[in-house]
Amino acid sequence: MVNSKKILIVDDDSDVVLFIATVLKDNGYQTIEAKDGLEGLDMAIAHHPDLILLDLMMPQKSGISLLNDLKENRNLSSIPIIMVTGVSGETGIDLETFFETRAKSQETNFSIKPDGYLEKPIDINKLLNLIKESI
């Protein structure tokens, strides 16, 4: 394989994980997978991936909570994170707006935001471009 970049996929939907993992492997990436936020944090610490694809809504520990933990961890804060979600502007919540609003109204540590956004259903080309730009 030409590309040996390691990408962590965190999503509670095993079908989504399988789909994304297949796409990434087909494009020469290595993948590791976690089914919720807690497992995602463990995997990130253990494997120090090159990029993390993070689902927003998950049991145990939500995507936002994990994002905060990762960005506040000095060893992990440099890892680019792309948030993947079914919630978008169309359904009333715009993630980008959400993070910007939060950054403006809250303390410094809440200026944390992901490096990219990706909406479900997943546009494969958009996914691959985002990853390429981020790494």
């Binding site: 939907d13 079908d15 989504v16 399988l18 789909f19 994304i20 297949t22 079914g86 359904t91 479900k120 259903p121 997943i122």
Partner: peptide, 10 residues
């Protein structure tokens, strides 16, 4: 959307 994501993946 969730179903679509599933179908897209499939």
């Amino acid at each position: 959307k969730n179903i679509l994501t599933g179908l897209q993946g499939a």
